[in-house]
Amino acid sequence: MTEAGSPNGSGGPAFVHVRGVSKWFGSLQVLKGIDLDIPEHNVVCLIGASGSGKSTLLRCLNLLERVEEGEIVVDGQPLTDGKVDVNALRKKIGIVFQAYNLFPHMTVLQNVTLAPRKALGVQRDRSEEYARALLRRIGLEEKADEYPDRLSGGQQQRVAIVRALAMGPKLMLLDEITSALDPQLVSDVLSLVRELAESGMTMIVATHEMGFAREVADKVCFLDAGRILEEGAPAQIFSNPREPRTREFLSRVLEAEKAEGLG
């Protein structure tokens, strides 16, 4: 662990430090020199059209995708120097996916306790106790012994968040976690994320929920074709975007939301 090497405050490297990160799928370049700095306890929202690189960037931060060029440092630990212990690193960085990806052959409780027990070596009793406490916090304690297919999408996604939290991560990556949900299930998930933000969790959130981004984010980044085209405080990005592409994107999203509201 690198507690000593994780300077806070101004001057030192940020908690999450991304420099010149590029990524190709075959001949298609999906990330084009991403730079991003995030202080600890901050929430950064990534917005942008599908295919703009938001998910890929998050997957690179968890080394689910190999970074071909550039540098990523999280909590003082370089991810991209080739010598990193991927498994150790992932224990500190939780990721939640759009499709929940709960393990269908395990109960909710087993889903939440698997990684703490097997990757951290926590005793079964202790990990179950902690898992139940987390489930209680999100009001799903009575679902502990159910299988995921008995839960609604919103419940499954909240379990997926708790599953990541059970590892005690210092950074959470949320990849469009409400995109697969029915509209009436979105708010439960978002309020859990809001709670996390208030508790000081450092988060990078790829989202299409502009209202949520505006409310929770310390910084919003607009991605376009693999680049961060514009970044700034939410108020600035949403009220007064500098780039024409950002304006265009936001007005399209706004129209879509209006259309949805009418329908």
Binding site: I95, H105, L114, A115, K118, R163
Partner: peptide
């Protein structure tokens, strides 16, 4: 593949992901 990704993202090793997540589902 997303099942394996979910398991690995939680810090499980390749073999742990196979043993606890992939193989039990595959065998069924």
């Amino acid at each position: 593949a997303s099942q394996r990704a979910a398991a690995r993202s939680l810090g499980l090793t390749y073999m742990q992901a196979m043993r606890y997540v992939v193989v039990p589902q595959a065998v069924r």
